[in-house]
Design a protein around this nucleic acid. Sequence first.
DNA 1: TCTTGTAAAG
Length: 554
Amino acid sequence: MRLLSWRKAKHLTGPKCRICYSSTDNRIPSQNIHITRKELSKLLHQRPPKSQLKQIHAQILAQSFSSTASFVNSLIHCYLHIKEFTSARLLFFHYPLPSPPILIWNLIIRTYCKLQNSSESFSLFRQLLNLDPLIRVHPDEYTFTFIVTSCAHQRSIVHGKIVHGLVVKNGLESNLYVGNSLINMYAVFKITDDAYKVFDKMTERDVFSWTSLVCGYANNDEMDQACEIFYKMPLRNDVSWAVIISGFAGYRRYMEVLTYLNEMLFAVEDKVRPNEAVLVCALSACANLGALEQGNWIHSYIMRNEVPNSSNISTALIDMYAKCGRIDCARLIFNRIPRPDVHNFTSMISGLSYHGLGEDSLTVFNRMLDENVNPNEVTIIGVLNACSHSGLVEEGSSIFYNMETLWGLKPQIEHYGCYVDLLGRAGYLEKALEVVKSMQVKPDIVIWRALLSACRIHRNIFLGYSIIDFIKKLNYDGPSGSEVLLSNLYASLGNWNKVSEVRKAMGQRKTQSDIGCSWIEVNGVVHEFRVADKLHPQILKVLNKLNELWIVLS
DNA sequence: TCTTGTAAAG
């Protein structure tokens, strides 16, 4: 005999309790045991774990309460709570009344909405709309909030537009929650005009409405509008700051990331602290700017404020230290992680590869495999780069050719790029060309560039020219970086007429977007310089110093 | 029962 064992049932184990279970099967209560209606509903109200829920369900069946709507509702609640969707759906489809109440529809729809890639919420919603008029229940603001959220998870806006129409028809467009989910939906699809229209029509707005709108502009590379709305917000929470900061990070505008982080730290009126997303973006900015001092400061901020040690934070710290030249610190962070996950491993492997530590990178990769952590596409890029920079051709080839069979990772164009680079650098130019020709995807300019660069290193004039001819025929209209390489190749081949020809063509087009840019961190301040910079506040001082150095050196 | 954000890549 076994009594209910979970903690919330303790009060039932006294003399009043009449639950007991058969000694042969401790899950199913024997038929002659009786629990009152009140006790059963009280038990269900406590959202019991699976084994106990099955026992209670059996009692409900045994006592013929299964046609009592309130019991079925509670059972559905409980099954959804423990994520037993099949049982919940079964109860839903055999509901004792002609239609479940809207609350139960909403709960089931919500479940599928949370599964993100499921279209099941739509089919339920369709069933709800097509109910016989005699038993009709009407979708409410909850139903629409879930359905609109489901629309935001779809590949196209088609469903979203139809649902928006229904929202208007049901007079719910200005409802706070429905409106917020609509703004979010349009933000996801980067339709900022429509997001703004919904926002504009709302009679009540909260921090979600504002943040979702800012997010829409940020997703759509409209950072000026994003900032404008951001500053108009009556109150910003940590997520609002995360949205604007991650917006800048997404467009590689790292200086702004650090500026906004700084502003956030001083935004007393918002009473916010940088959350994980903000810190991760800021660390990534430091990594890409080489801003070690700022990165160090963020690291100490994390420790001072006891920010929970998440995988994302440690991944970002490893990346920051590695990219800022402190591979020792990156290793220290990595070695302190008790059970590194795929992201931690990837960041460490890539970090070691930038430092030319190919063997170490492979050691970490092998440890990862020993610990049964599966690599992802990015991990393989890191390992291939490590092999490439350390001339580990055999190891790299074996990883490249086995990535699909061993880890189910189909080589993407990036992997081909790394592999061609690996072969090219090691001097296997013909083999590299063979790989490019055998690719199932169309080689992009990056791959040709890797090959050209290899031709330049190994001064293979013949192959270099044939690649140039090939690139010309393909008529890539990519960034002028490839033209720079082309002109460099001509230069290394001594063909100065061609060099000036290419440079002239580049000059005529004046591609503004490809202007080179570099950074340097001095006393914790990151200074950014562009070609022929006239904007830096201390440019005259910098130029004078350069002249001084020039005189000393010459 | 309801809506917002993040790392690693040639």
